[in-house]
Amino acid sequence: MTRFTLTPPLIALILAVILFFAGGLINPDFVNPAQATNIVRLAAFLGIIAAGQTLVILSGGEGIDLSIGAVVTMGAILTFRLTGGDNSLIWVGLLASCGAGVVIGLINGIGIALLRIPPLVMTLGMTGVVQGTILVLTQGEMIGATPPLMRQLIAEPLILGIPGVIFIWAMVGIGMWVLLERTTYGKQLFAIGVNRTVARFSGVRVQWIVVLTYILSGLLAGFGGFILLGFAQTVFLQLGNNYLFPSIAAVVVGGTLLSGGKGSYWGTMSGALVLTLIDSLLRAAGLEQAYQLIVFGVILLALIVVYGRQRSLRQ
């Protein structure tokens, strides 16, 4: 008989449901299907952007990708500029945003795996480079437009009143599950996350897996920027910054260990839902922005206390 255990992703999901109905206490208009759909829609953007962060954190070795905020901005701006609002050029935007993400991820990966620069520093340094590149490319002028078709396919209700981005998120979720659970890459990713030396001795090409992981992270962030444009409709230099730390928080709240080797993408999906719900609840409660920030910080701290704890020194 398999015993029913409360795993962190499950706790997060239950918490999300409780939070949603708790919202009804604050504001009776909060609990309805339209609001639920809206929250899942908002969580989808964070969830897609946090997918790459999940892989990077799973890879261990203090793995973290601080450049994804800038990559998201880059992806959105490239799509905005290259399509110029033309539906027939959407594929150019998609290719460019994903391509830029791959290149940035490759540079991150080389710096981290070959030059042994700590991930925090390397991706932080790349953030500046990406932001600088954006400034050089745009010269501070945001010329372009969002193709109307992107809005229809991503942000507006597509089938049964459900927006397209939720379907995209579901596909990303399935893709991530297959990648992590059913491919050699996934097995090797968990292996290097647990112990790189052991993984190397059992024949895993550690450096190659690390480079590949950062490439995937860049790719997913670039794709996230492309998707985000369909919702935001407009671009600005800080567009992606608001997703950087929430992406890390979503991964942690979903029960993935920051030390690597243990976790899941469905945990991150639950984490994204919880964070988005808290954010929406605080807005619905009509709190001033200052209180919103404080309460968000306290709740985040409480969530990490519940299941983000590291092992004790005394064992």
């Binding site: 920051l258 701290l301 990490i304 983000g308 590291q310």
Partner: peptide, 8 residues
């Protein structure tokens, strides 16, 4: 509380 420094 043994929380990870980055997120804390």
């Amino acid at each position: 509380l043994r929380l990870q420094p980055i997120v804390t």
